[in-house]
Structures are given as C-alpha cells and as structure tokens.
C-alpha cells in the first residue's frame, strides 16, 4: 500500500530443502495408510475378510456408489454439492425398468435400460445445473428439492413397488464377470480413470478447478463459469443414472427405496478423499480411497459382528476426523 523504498527481504527466493514434514506426509497419505491398517486389522481378526469372494464383494458394493462419487468430485471441486443423486439413481433405475417392461420392443433389455437411465440422469443433471446458474438458487437447495422430487417421482411411477423380471443380459451388468472381475468393478475403474484423466489432463478439468478456486477470478480469466457449473451437474447426473442401472442389474429389480442415503455416502467418500467443500482442491485418487475406506469399514464391521447401528456412528466419526485433520494440517502449514 505504500511506495516507501524499503530494503525488502526477498520472499520469493528459493527456500532451503525442507526437512521431512510428518503432518504434510499424513495429509497426503493418511487416509491411504488408514485404509491399509483397516484391511490388515480386519484380516487379522477374521481371515475370511481377505478371501477373494469377500474382496470382490466389497469392490462391487463400492463400485455402485463409487461411480457417483467420481461425478460428485467434479461437483465439489466447483464448491457445489448434489444431494439428489440417491433419489435420481432410484428414479433412473425404475424408469428404465418401467420402459423395459412396458415398451421393450426388439432391442436388448440392457440396451434400452442403460439408454433410458443415462438419458434421465443427463436431463435431470442439466435441469439442476440450469436452475442453479440461471435462477441463482444455491446448489444445496436445488438438489435438496431434487432429492425429494425424484424420490417422489420414483414412488409415483410404480406406486412404490419394485419392478423386476429382467433377462440374463440385463443382469450380467450387475452380476457378471470378465476374467473373474465383476462388471460393475470394471465400469467403476473405467469411470474413475476417465474422471482422473479429465481433471488432470484436460482444459475442462483445469476450468473446473479454477471455477471452484475463485469463481470471480475464473470469470475474469475468460472462463464461461455457468457452462462449467452446468457441466458438472450433468456429469454427476449421468453417473447417478448409470449407477441406478448397475444397482438394478445387480439386485435383479428396480426398487423405489434404492439409493436412500447414497448422497451422504458419496459426499463422505469425496470429503474423506481430501476434497475441500469450498472448492478448488481435491482429486479422483482421493475419492477412490475414500469410497474404498467406507466400503471396507462397512464390510469389516459386519464381519466383526458390529451392529449396523454402530457402524453409522463409526463412519460418522471418521468423516469428521478426516476433515478435522485436514483443517489442522492446513493451519500447521500456515504456521511454518
């Protein structure tokens, strides 16, 4: 603020090589270490935990909501949130099943269902994004509304009942394997890879980070902020639709109560993975670890015969602890 000529020490001079920083190390690798410790712990408790069957079972469970968590990473990077994903998943699944049942035609069931579920996800995501940017309603409110709307629509569509009776081709998407790997796991891997590459290596990815880091600066840097915001809700919507398709294929029926509380599990995955709810920081690798952590924990606690009520308490504690540690690490960095 002043033009006083003062001999200023140069703050940009390259610093000496810093000593090993435990806090910074734990900030990057803490959740991964914790995940490994959990796996070792559960395996020591009960060797069945590490059996191939159980491992694949965990991975398949994780894949269903992990697919959405990849999309949620994009949303949270822009400092947004999508609470509607669980309901949207159910609606896309039941609408797809309804179309298969009532106007199937000659096309394969899975193709019809996949197309319908994806299309519904894309359209709903676009509607969310457009409402957020155009009417300037906060994402929390728009998707809170969406959460109720899509759940209601799901119940209306088949009077609250499930739709089942899919053929083998449909069910393969949820229960089949390729070279021993369950199909949902393969799809999750592909989606996560695509998400990682997009965020890390593309212009769009850079713009997502920029919008979340500082929306005003992003606009002044020539980024179409509204288009980016709409895109991320379209992405998460599409992936919620895809997840709905996978879940109904796995269960063999589209349930009106499917995906309840998924939004929380998905958001928790992203946040445990180190993403900041205020936007601009986070990555798919972290989300992957976060999603696995929740999956391993749920499964491991079951194997340890911990009640499902108690599981919720544990998962809640871990979410808060992860974020608290991140906040502590940030202030620690500020002090050095």
């Amino acid at each position: 603020m002043t033009s006083t000529p003062a001999p200023a020490p140069d703050p940009s001079a390259p610093p000496a090589k810093p000593p090993f920083d435990t806090v910074a190390f734990l900030r990057t690798w803490g959740t991964t270490l914790f995940l490994l410790l959990l796996i070792i712990g559960f395996a020591a408790w009960n060797p069945r935990f590490l059996s191939l069957r159980n491992a694949l079972n965990i991975l398949t469970e994780v894949s269903i909501y992990g697919v959405i968590a990849v999309g949620m990473t994009f949303v949270i990077l822009t400092a947004g949130v999508d609470l509607a994903v669980g309901s949207l998943l159910a609606f896309a699944a039941i609408a797809a099943a309804w179309v298969v049942q009532h106007m199937g035609g000659d096309l394969p069931q899975w193709l019809v269902a996949l197309s319908v579920a994806s299309a519904i996800g894309l359209a709903a995501g676009y509607a969310h994004g457009k409402t957020i940017t155009w009417l300037k309603v906060p994402a929390f409110i728009v998707t809170l509304g969406g959460m109720t709307i899509w759940r209601g629509a799901t119940l209306i569509l088949n009077d609250g009942g499930p739709i089942s009776g899919f053929d083998a081709g449909y069910r393969w998407w949820g229960t089949g394997t390729v070279l021993g790997v369950p199909v949902p796991v393969i799809l999750f891997a592909l989606v996560a890879l695509a998400g990682h590459v997009t965020l890390r290596y593309t212009r769009f990815g850079r713009q997502v980070y920029a919008v979340g880091g500082n929306a005003e600066a992003a606009r002044l840097a020539g980024i179409n902020v509204k288009a980016i915001l709409i895109s991320v809700y379209v992405i998460v919507g599409f992936l919620a639709g895809l997840s709905g398709f996978l879940l109904s294929a796995r269960l063999g029926s589209a349930e009106a109560v499917a995906g309840i509380n998924y939004e929380l599990r998905v958001i928790a995955s992203v946040v445990i993975g180190g993403a900041s709810l205020s936007g601009g920081a986070g990555h798919i690798r972290g989300t992957l670890i976060g999603a696995l952590l929740i999956g391993v924990l749920s499964n491991g606690l079951v194997i340890m015969h911990v009640s499902s009520y108690f599981q919720q308490v544990v998962i809640g504690l871990i979410i808060v602890a992860a974020v608290a540690f991140d906040a502590y690490a940030k202030s620690h960095r500020g002090k050095v």
Partner: peptide, 26 residues
C-alpha cells in the same frame, strides 16, 4: 489469482485453448 493453485496453472489459464491438443488435452 487462484492462490492455492500452481503458478503454471495460474499463468496458462486464459490461453489453454492455444495449448490444447485435439480432445481438449492440455
């Protein structure tokens, strides 16, 4: 500025189009 983001990302942000390969890869 995007204070938490790298100097490289800050510097190139407005000109990413010219730095992109087909498919939007930087």
């Amino acid at each position: 500025c995007f204070l938490d983001h790298s100097i490289r990302h800050n510097l190139s942000l407005s000109g990413l189009k010219a730095l992109s390969r087909p498919g939007g890869f930087v």
